[in-house]
Design a protein around this nucleic acid. Structure first.
Lengths: 348, 348
DNA sequence: CTGTTAGCGCATTCAT
DNA sequence: ATGAATGCGCTAACAG
């Protein structure tokens, strides 16, 4: 037998160091982009990494790491139920985070005020290894995000994106596609006769709402021309306002056949539908599977709920951050946030 | 910087050993249920674990483990496309598995023959730390599963369950609920006029098919009494047979409004629908988002696809095995396999 | 049955 | 700018 060809399963940093003729510590510095290494040395190490196909062992890295990585979740204050689900999921993953050497804080911010949001973001500079933020797309916010990434913090947008910023990832659904999905559901549920469809949203200045509205109209216009989409109503994601809007809606259009609720505050719409005795015969499609939405699905008030899985989003954001920090492998397929459709029959 | 007060993070096995007045090795033996420890000692250690709230560190455990855990996936030979997706996903997770100290083999078995399946299962005794199997529910198979678990192998059923066996977990959807979902989709897509609905399945002796059929009928009978469900047709999951069945179906029932395909071989149904010129006006709902199904959704031949995420199932099975071996934490929420509904608009 | 000991692969001092 | 040495928490081989 030859002493040489030990079928080494996987190269270690030690191997890389040897191959590059440097010490373990230097190899580590180079691989993890730590300061204090000559460019020439870094190149040598990278070459060795390439030759040996080195990939760090996540278990070993976590075991050796002293410091926890600090991440901040910036979520809307004054919370609707979906945001509540997100916080719950952060809690639910606490043990796992600990195993991954992650420490997370949840900060409540008035995300509707760009200046405040930007201030909150900037306050994280130098304090966090990653910031996960449900952001408003606004120049001030974008600039704050850019400063954060510049400072070396990984920034991940959640649920609503800020595409022109330098955030490393967006974790959430394709909202245009979600709007299209809602349109197809309503179109097919209403049937082929002419009818009116109403649309209630939080605000057209929210990127996710605007995109859903856009997608919805696309499909309605192209595929269900017999349906008339009424002008959008803005309820600020507020249940009381939505209830009033819904009541007015039926006063003006007694023959209304369907409602698409783009944002939060669906409870108000349900309440109005019930008081008017129109809960069963109005097609009602909304977003986010909150406990109330689940109940409305079961009692027939809602006909379908389009959901994005809060737990999945939290874990995905964190896994992407880990990958960014330590070049852990990303399973692309796993990080795609699906547009879930729930009927009363396939509730989880 | 808040570099203050690093609190005592977490109890280690070392702490447990000290608390229980035993050595590290003994504590390890007790915690990992290895043989050769007096019951009294085990009790002492467990008590210490409880008092300190000890939980093993997965990273440290993986780093120290020399041997890879061996798992076998037993999948149907002569593969339909969905099974192909499962194998692909096993490949796609290879790096991750390696990081988790898992080695997996895929074995193709004739799962439709209980005796052969049982033999394949028994061949794994003593060879595997876990076996993940897409099984037929049959007494011989059940017995083989029981012998495997008796021998200390973790057994996980995939896609189709064997509930009366001692398998540790079932990873897959609730098939009754899936059938109900299909019924609601068809019921609402067809509309309120009387019509005929056909159902094509692989075989009623397959547990998952039978359960879907059951759920479908439940909802049809209770909620869509104006729809007539024709007797089920068995096509053995074979495209050619399904094509023939579909053609016959329309010969007998020219007014057929919808088809629910419970199993595989949807390509045959599509082909028949197209040749007959009935692709657009027949509501067609089936299972599993294969490339062909995706295409049929986009061209309007299929109206909805009910899916279970193959990648999610593979990862879930593996995570559950890890949890079983090393008491890693399970995020229950994450392991629930969802009944995905895909329309042309929310395709991933 | 129980204890002692030597790593696993990497992050992190502390030297040089 | 680089290297040597230490130890994270656990598994496993070896002693008693």
């Amino acid at each position: 037998m030859d002493a040489k060809a030990a079928p080494k399963v996987r190269a270690t940093l030690e191997d890389v160091a040897q191959e590059a003729q440097v010490s373990l510590a230097t190899a580590d510095r180079a691989v993890n982009k730590r300061p204090g290494v000559r460019a020439a040395t870094v190149a040598k190490v990278n070459e060795a990494v390439r030759r040996l196909g080195y990939r760090p062992d996540p278990s070993a890295a976590k075991l050796a790491r002293a410091r926890l990585r600090r991440v901040a979740f910036l979520l809307p204050a004054g919370a609707n139920r979906f945001v509540g689900l997100l916080s719950e999921q952060i809690q639910a993953n606490a043990e796992w985070m600990h195993d991954q050497r992650i420490h997370a804080d949840v900060l409540a911010v008035n995300v509707f005020n760009p200046v405040e949001l930007a201030k909150a973001l900037l306050a994280q500079v130098g304090q966090r290894d990653a910031v996960v933020v449900m952001a408003l797309d606004h120049p001030v916010v974008r600039s704050a995000i850019d400063q954060l990434t510049q400072a070396g913090t990984v920034v991940i947008t959640l649920v609503s994106d800020v595409p022109s910023s330098t955030r490393q990832h967006y974790v959430g659904i394709n909202n245009t596609a979600a709007g299209r999905t809602a349109a197809t559901l309503i179109g097919r549920f209403v049937g082929r006769h002419p009818a009116k469809v109403a649309i209630i949203l939080g605000s057209l200045s929210l990127r996710d709402h605007a995109e859903r509205y856009f997608g919805f109209n696309q499909v309605m216009a192209q595929e269900h021309p017999h349906l008339t989409v009424l002008p959008p109503l803005e309820g600020q994601d507020d249940a009381a306002r939505n209830e009033a809007l819904t009541t007015q809606l039926f006063a003006l259009h007694p023959d209304l056949a369907a409602i698409y609720s783009v944002g939060a505050g669906n409870g108000g719409i349900s309440t109005a539908l019930c008081s008017l005795g129109r809960a069963q015969d109005t097609v009602f499609v909304g977003h986010e599977l909150t406990p109330a939405a689940r109940a409305d699905l079961l009692n027939g008030t809602m006909d379908a709920v389009i959901n994005q899985d809060a737990g999945h989003e939290i874990r995905s954001a964190l896994r992407l951050a880990l990958a960014q920090w330590s070049q852990e492998p990303v399973i692309a397929d796993q990080e795609r946030i699906r547009i879930d459709i729930y009927l009363k029959d396939n509730l989880p």
